[in-house]
Write a protein that binds this DNA or RNA. Structure first.
Length: 409
RNA sequence: GCGACCGUAGCUCAGUUGGUUAGAGCGCCGGUUUGUGGUACCGGAGGUCGGGGGUUCGAGACCCCUCGGUCGCCCCA
């Protein structure tokens, strides 16, 4: 009896993933690993925590992520550290501090946990997991296209492309984006009293966000708001044109979504999201864009880059629960006098590459039934007949032969 | 940070307008039965009813606080 010691609870918004859900999670990661190798993206690992400045400088001080969602703390040396809320900033830091410029253009992929202090809900956790792909040091629209085509292939290989659509936009280069932003602020300021409270607040913090407000009060003004297209430079238009024609050439379907903006300050030019209506309020399955200004914000050389990230939990929800694979062989010891034979057999089977489990505890009479009930491709039972250890295999012939061979080694 | 709903055995749940020692199914453990076999029966372990306070003669049921879950808002993957 554990008595009066109360068990510490798991941290809010964290999850213990098990069984069919864990299989779905693993399937997403395995599929990503396979696809990323097809596109020759190199695997990298970076720390789950960084100096706080890595994120605050990259994402923008006024973004929600930086202003209220970071898990920041001081270490024993008094340094402010932060559990990574996203991958890109840390990867950019690594690119600069580890001299990865020598490998540019560099295609990299990673996956792992991220942390954001948010109210948990469907598809949103405080510790969540993403897969991530970046192309750093490539200014060409072909890099954007390659990334998008890879994302599209991933969703197809996961079997969840149905009902997921690619929404694509351009934010233009830095100057285009600024001009557009100023025009939006000016426009919305004229209607500020009619906007929702949230959007009035956004006008100060993040005016682009008003464009994808869900509030019906904002809709009419959003419809007539200045469009990015009016502010795009010639180069920005050409760039976006090259991305869309590349997608068309690769056979990837997309929708122009001129109200699509991304939350973080570092985005330029291409911005995109793969969205679905099958995940409740969290429609975005995979999102990203080009962040040509980020490296400089971190004190590095001007370095063009593009990338995306996708939530593993969200992808796994779309994949659905996956069956855990059935055991090849269950070895049943029906009499403890045959224990040594059972232990030997299960060891040999596993060494031969056959998955095997040993059922040798609890009531001897019920062990075989438990094996039948759990299910296995074959059951190998050891019992005592007339004082001798006797074995019996219940399996299809070809598998029975394989078991015999493994045991004979 | 805001809102709504929810919280009874390991799991899924029941528990009548507040009324004795809180139940079922599944699972688990043991026994009997069957014996090339996923049977049936019997028995057992396991709950301070998320936690704390309050109302009441009496609270799993009502009230407050708190923690957690779920789903929205916000934000995002």
């Amino acid at each position: 009896m554990s008595g009066k010691i109360d068990t510490p609870q798991a941290i809010r918004g964290t999850q213990d993933i098990f069984g069919a859900e864990a299989e779905a999670f693993a399937h997403v990661v395995e599929t990503f690993e396979r696809v990323r190798k097809l596109y020759r993206f190199r695997r990298v690992e970076t720390p789950v925590f960084e100096k706080t400045a890595v994120f605050s400088r990259s994402l923008g001080e006024t973004t929600d992520v930086v202003s209220k969602e970071m898990y920041s703390f001081e270490d024993r040396g008094g340094e402010s550290l932060t559990l990574r809320p996203e991958f890109t900033a840390g990867l950019a830091r690594a690119y600069i501090t580890d001299g990865w410029k020598q490998y540019a253009p560099l295609k990299i992929a990673t996956h792992g946990p991220l942390f954001r202090y948010e109210r948990p809900q469907k598809g949103r956790y405080r510790q969540f997991h993403q897969i991530d792909a970046e192309v750093i040091g490539a200014a060409e629209p072909q890099a954007d296209v390659e990334l998008l085509v890879m994302a599209d292939q991933l969703l197809n290989e996961l079997g969840i492309a149905e009902g997921v659509t690619l929404q694509l936009n351009t934010l233009g280069d830095g100057d285009s984006r600024e001009a557009w932003r100023s025009a939006l602020v000016e426009y919305f300021r004229d209607h500020v009293i009619s906007l929702s409270e949230d959007s009035q607040d956004r006008l100060e913090r993040n005016p682009l966000r008003i464009l994808d407000s869900k509030d019906p009060r904002d809709r009419p003004f959003v419809a007539d708001a200045p469009k990015i297209d009016q502010f795009l430079s010639g180069e920005a238009q050409d760039f976006f044109g090259a991305v869309t024609s590349g997608l068309d050439a690769a056979g990837v379907r997309w929708n122009r979504m001129d109200s699509l903006v991304r939350g973080l300050d570092y985005y330029r030019h291409t911005a995109f999201e793969f969205v679905t209506d099958r995940l409740g309020a969290q429609g975005t399955v995979l999102g990203g864009g080009r962040y040509d200004g980020l490296m400089e914000a971190l004190g590095g050389p001007m370095t063009p880059a593009v990338g995306w990230a996708a939530g593993i939990e969200r992808l796994a929800m779309l994949v659905g629960e996956r069956e855990e694979p059935v055991t090849d062989v269950i070895v049943v010891v029906e009499d403890d006098a045959a224990m040594a034979e059972g232990v030997a057999a299960v060891s040999r089977l596993r060494r031969s590459g056959t998955s095997a489990e040993l059922f040798a505890s609890g009531s001897p009479r019920k062990r075989f039934d438990k094996a039948v009930k759990q299910g296995a491709k074959a059951i190998l039972a050891y019992s005592i007949r007339e004082g001798e250890v006797a074995s019996r295999i219940k399996a299809e012939d070809n598998l029975a032969d394989r078991i015999e061979a493994a045991l004979a080694d």
